[in-house]
């Protein structure tokens, strides 16, 4: 499915289950998402991660609602499954779509200005380097006997200095590769929203509506 349509669908459904209260629909969404993820050949480690880590907030919410909420245990279960529904819905997108395809389709089909699509893409591609830079900043401060934590303004200050420098370099590099802001572009890789994408989007969204309408438990 087109990544842009998929993201839109996932967000719409996630938004809807925030406002509706149906335990069974939550479980159906989790099951369908899980089945979809399993067909996509993802690693066991990633699968374990999305099952294990949400357990903490899910149990936390469950217990507090159970002990202090006025709506009873059924509502606590809805909150518990809601967290998993968010995560599994999200995983159908994040584990199977590339951020490059997403920004290409956002530019070509959703009419996002190209400077946003490519600018943000360029920055996101630096993510591993940024993680590295954070480590470098912390280590070099440590060598001067200065421990930087997430509450230290200096850590952010140095990060912003790097961002300023890198944004300058990246923008120059893109310009020298022929990128012109606010100018019509031609595309090497063309991504279109097909009739199948539309059909899937509408049918899946409609099915969720029907489920939410009829299953109130």
């Amino acid at each position: 499915m087109n990544p842009g349509m998929k993201l839109l669908l996932v967000m719409l459904v996630a938004l809807e289950i925030s406002f509706t209260q149906s335990l069974i629909v939550n479980i159906i969404l989790i099951a369908v998402s899980l089945l979809y993820i399993l067909t996509q050949h993802i690693s066991m480690k990633a699968l374990f991660g999305i099952i294990f880590w949400p357990l903490f907030p899910a149990v936390g919410l469950f217990v507090s609602q159970w002990l202090y909420g006025s709506a009873g245990i059924h509502f606590a279960w809805i909150l518990f499954t809601r967290i998993y529904a968010y995560v599994f819905l999200g995983a159908t997108f994040t584990l199977t779509s590339s951020i490059t395809d997403l920004s290409l389709t956002l530019e070509q089909d959703f009419h996002l200005p190209s400077k946003f699509a490519y600018g943000v893409l360029a920055a996101f591609n630096l993510m591993p380097k940024i993680a590295e830079e954070v480590r470098i900043i912390k280590t070099s401060a440590l060598m001067r006997g200065d421990a930087l934590h997430f509450w230290s303004p200096k850590l952010y200050f140095k990060s912003i200095l790097s961002s300023i420098q890198w944004s300058h370099n990246l923008a120059e590099a893109m310009t020298s590769h022929g990128f012109v802001e606010d100018y019509e572009r031609t595309h090497y890789k063309v991504i279109r929203i097909t009739a199948l994408d539309w059909t899937l989007f509408i049918v899946l969204l409609a099915v969720v509506q029907v489920l939410l309408f009829f299953i109130r438990y």
């Binding site: 993201l7 996932v10 967000m11 996630a14 938004l15 925030s18 999305i50 880590w53 949400p54 903490f56 907030p57 967290i83 968010y86 995560v87 599994f88 819905l89 999200g90 995983a91 997108f93 994040t94």
Partner: peptide
């Protein structure tokens, strides 16, 4: 750990 919830 928030999945699609983080987008929203």
């Amino acid at each position: 750990q928030w999945g699609a919830g983080a987008f929203i």
